[in-house]
């Protein structure tokens, strides 16, 4: 196919799945003990996982500079994880992180709006490793081959080498453009999405002005709006935003998923919403599909 291409390589935007290690303590002995137990129980989840080390809480407490970062990186490696980035580091710790080859990632609130801010647990501080939301059959497409079939104009920003090179931990994907720090723009697709095409609006909302055919897939970290029949798969809140919603002028999807909670339409949707203007949203663990009223 690309035999006319003279360049020996292509650079494309990519996203990899990773973990975020949110530190609440600098006591590496305690952390290691707890981590070993979690890894033992987690199957393959941690194997070769890229990790973002989030030290925001430590920086706020003023204990960040005492963190033995090199030891932590080695500790992770012993448990088959690879530190690739750091979040919330300043001053000395940031310099140390950069010397270790870690990429500085912006510290913004993850797009999980309904999660109450967690108070630091009193007795035994422990690290928390959060995996990206997993939904059977929905997560793999989010992490692989993202722009492979998208129309040429689908991506609002041209993938840059920097973007391609920086691994992103999906669990902590910010609703912002990592490069500029501005809120991520809404991606607007003004042509029909055909079977086999897939579009991912990273960090923001997705608007499709046309039909999403059977076998097409629309994914957004935020909301999805389809001004036409939605017949393919729609995955909103792909990085865990349980407040994300899916709107369609004619709701007739193969599958809809919000923050990993999904439903297929093997069992048909109710007559009040099937093929009609409707929205899907989460109420706790339950997916509600409701008609849009005037």
């Amino acid at each position: 196919m690309n035999r006319t291409t003279t360049s020996p390589f292509d650079i494309k935007s990519a996203t990899i799945q990773g973990l975020s290690l949110i530190l609440r303590s600098i006591k590496l002995d305690v952390i290691e003990g707890d981590l070993a137990a979690r890894v033992a129980n987690a199957g393959d989840l941690f194997t070769n996982a890229p990790v973002l080390i989030n030290v925001s809480a430590l920086t706020a407490e003023g204990t960040a500079d005492k963190l033995e970062l090199t030891r932590l990186v080695n500790l992770l490696r012993r448990h088959t994880m690879r530190a690739v980035g750091i979040v919330g580091a300043t001053g000395l710790l940031l310099k140390q992180a950069q010397a270790l080859g870690l990429v500085e990632e912006p510290d913004v609130q993850p797009r999980v709006r309904n999660k109450a801010p967690q108070a630091a647990p009193e007795p035994e501080p422990a690290p928390v490793a959060e995996a990206a939301p997993q939904a059977p059959g929905t997560t793999p497409p989010v992490v692989t081959d993202l722009f492979a079939d998208a129309p040429a104009s689908a991506s609002p920003s041209t993938p840059t080498p920097a973007e391609a090179a920086v691994p992103q931990a999906q669990a902590q994907e910010p609703p912002r453009d990592a490069a500029t720090g501005r809120p991520a723009p809404t991606m607007v697709i003004d042509r029909p999405l055909r079977s086999g095409q897939r579009v991912y609006a990273r960090g923001g909302d997705l608007v499709v002005l046309g039909v999403v055919s059977h076998g097409a897939e629309v994914i957004a970290d935020g909301n999805i709006h389809v001004y036409g029949p939605l017949r393919g798969r729609a995955i909103a809140g792909a990085t865990g935003d349980v407040e994300a919603r899916i709107f369609a002028v004619a709701m007739e999807p193969e599958l809809i998923s919000i923050a990993g909670t999904y439903r297929t339409t093997d069992k048909p949707l109710a007559d009040t919403v099937r093929g009609k203007p409707a929205q899907a949203r989460l109420d706790g663990d339950k997916m509600l599909i409701e008609p849009l009223k005037n």
Binding site: D149, A150, P151, A152, R191, P192, L193, R194, S195, G196
Partner: peptide
Amino acid sequence: DRILGMLSS
């Protein structure tokens, strides 16, 4: 439908 997607991309 799949072919139409390829024609446009």
